[in-house]
Amino acid sequence: MSFLNRFQPVLLSVLRITAAYMFMLHGTAKLFTFPFVEGLNPPLASIYGIAGILETVGGILLLLGLFTRPTAFLLSGQMAVAYFMAHTSPTPLFPLLNGGEAAALFCFVFLYIAAAGGGAWALDNRFNKA
């Protein structure tokens, strides 16, 4: 499968963009009730409101590939905290049962992006060429 090696930088960007878009939707649902999710409209000064800000702003930055590594690292940590705060009880080792699949996947996808960078289509590439 070495023929896929040449697509690695582009596919890294596709992973970053799709993950960022889906992550950003979690934030906009919290902050702007769009898309509408029943019962999800937290106060801005709550932990869920702050999470919504991080998800929206961080999602936009990742979507653009701007400040990719530090943003992805911060969001990876946010998702680790979210998993352990909201999803470990009573079955910490079974994300399928505790509803933590998205938090765990976002955590490790963002950790990978923090290590690998934004890929071929990141705005970071344009600004770091100076």
Rank of each mutant, 00 (worst) to 15 (best):
M79R: 12
L12E: 01
T68G: 00
V37S: 04
F34C: 01
G58F: 09
Y83Q: 12
N41K: 15
S89D: 14
F32L: 13
L12V: 10
F3P: 08
L93V: 01
H26S: 01
P95A: 09
S13E: 02
A102E: 02
G27P: 01
G118R: 07
R69W: 11
A114W: 08
A51W: 00
R69H: 08
T68V: 00
A104C: 13
P43F: 11
L96K: 04
L15V: 12
L97A: 07
S13T: 08
A45K: 05
K30Q: 04
G49V: 03
L31M: 09
A103F: 14
Y21T: 13
G99P: 09
F84T: 03
L93P: 01
N125I: 06
F110T: 08
G77P: 11
L96F: 09
A102K: 10
A80Q: 09
A115S: 11
N125T: 07
A104I: 15
S46P: 05
A20G: 11
S89T: 14
F7C: 02
R126W: 15
Y83C: 09
H87K: 07
G100D: 12
N98I: 06
G39K: 03
H87E: 07
V10S: 14
T33H: 13
N41D: 14
T18N: 01
L15P: 01
G100V: 11
A114N: 06
A86P: 02
G119Q: 09
G58I: 04
D124N: 07
G117N: 05
G65K: 07
M1Q: 05
F94G: 01
G59E: 05
S89H: 14
K129T: 11
R16W: 07
F108P: 02
N98V: 05
F23V: 00
L105Q: 06
V37P: 01
F94C: 00
L64A: 15
T28N: 03
F34K: 03
G99C: 11
T18F: 14
G118N: 06
V57Y: 04
Y48H: 14
T91F: 13
I50H: 14
L75Q: 09
F94R: 07
I17Y: 06
F127I: 13
G77S: 09
N128M: 06
C107F: 15
V81C: 11
F106K: 04
L96N: 04
A80D: 12
L63G: 10
S13L: 08
S46D: 02
G27H: 03
N98P: 10
F23A: 00
P70I: 04
F106I: 05
L75T: 11
